[in-house]
Amino acid sequence: MTDYSTALVLGAVVCYLIAMLSFAVDISALGGHAPQRKVRRAANIGLALSWLGVGLHLVGLVTRGLAAGRVPWANMYEFSLTFALVAMLGFLVINRKRDIRYLGVFVSFLAVAVLFVAFWHLFVEADGVQPILDSYWLVVHVSVAAGSTGVFSIAAAASALQLIQHRQSRRTAATKQPARVAAGSGGDVVEDAAVPPQPTTFVGRVMAHVPDVESLERFAYRLNAVAFVGWTLTLVAGAIWAEAAWGRPWGWDPKETWTLVIWLIYAAYLHVRATVGWTINRFAWFGLVGFVALLANFYVVNIFFPGNHSYSGL
């Protein structure tokens, strides 16, 4: 079963990698000089391969659980598989409601990178769990954490794209020049008739097909709000599990502390988003800081900071 799981997830990685290249080709077409086609074949190929990859990924995760005789998210390798699956599946499900193919390169790249690190640095053989982990809270606590991380990942991709769009919008605004336009039968000249400039750079032509800054910011905000609810449940479930396992709900373990730090960052982000009149690109930076803290919690704290959660890396 372990070998089948590994082969299936590796197949998913190949699908995601080719999908990423397809989405990149689609973006290259958007930035080209040729007229745009209504049917974006490269993007649709990327979507089809992403769905195929998700199918292989899901079956691989299930067979991993069957091989271990438990839910397949008890260590860093399995957590990586789970949250990469949530990120890709979330992207595909949302795309059925609204066209977000422009995020395909970002999300598929993240999935490939996460699975690459998982296979070559975090892989462990499928096995049972330590007695302290043998609890139904493993199902609740870790699954919700993985799901929230996947949704935070999509929001971070949208925030990164928002910052690129913001930069491009400023460049476009700076290139606007008044045009001299002849008006009226007397041949009078109007000096202030602004003619919207056409983007001349590759990035400019690509970003012309991406939603505006405000739309991207609202999209990232909604995803972060949903993921924040899940992260709150993660924090609460972890405290209840700690009480049952260690006889105390909170002990300032490095993992517990960083989980709280992440919660505080996103709580502050949601608060200032609702109350403070910042420019919207500052909210994007705020959300990205939270995502970097999330990655640090997983890849740095789990590995380099000993504590009660150190077994999660085994």
Rank of each mutant, 00 (worst) to 15 (best):
T6S: 07
T6P: 01
T6M: 09
A7M: 13
L8K: 09
V9Y: 06
L10D: 00
L10M: 12
G11E: 06
G11L: 05
A12W: 06
A12N: 04
V13I: 13
V13M: 15
V13A: 13
L17R: 00
I18S: 00
A19S: 15
L21R: 01
S22P: 03
F23Y: 15
F23A: 03
V25I: 14
V25P: 01
V25E: 11
V25W: 05
I27S: 09
I27K: 02
S28H: 10
A29F: 08
A29Q: 13
G31N: 07
H33N: 10
A34R: 15
P35F: 05
P35K: 08
Q36E: 12
K38V: 12
K38Y: 08
K38M: 11
V39N: 10
V39S: 08
R40Q: 15
R40T: 01
R41E: 09
A42M: 14
A43C: 05
A43W: 01
A43P: 01
N44W: 12
I45V: 15
L47V: 13
L47D: 08
L47C: 02
L47S: 07
L47Q: 08
A48K: 10
L49R: 03
S50G: 15
S50I: 04
L52F: 12
G53I: 03
G53H: 10
G53Q: 08
L56E: 05
L56A: 12
L56Q: 06
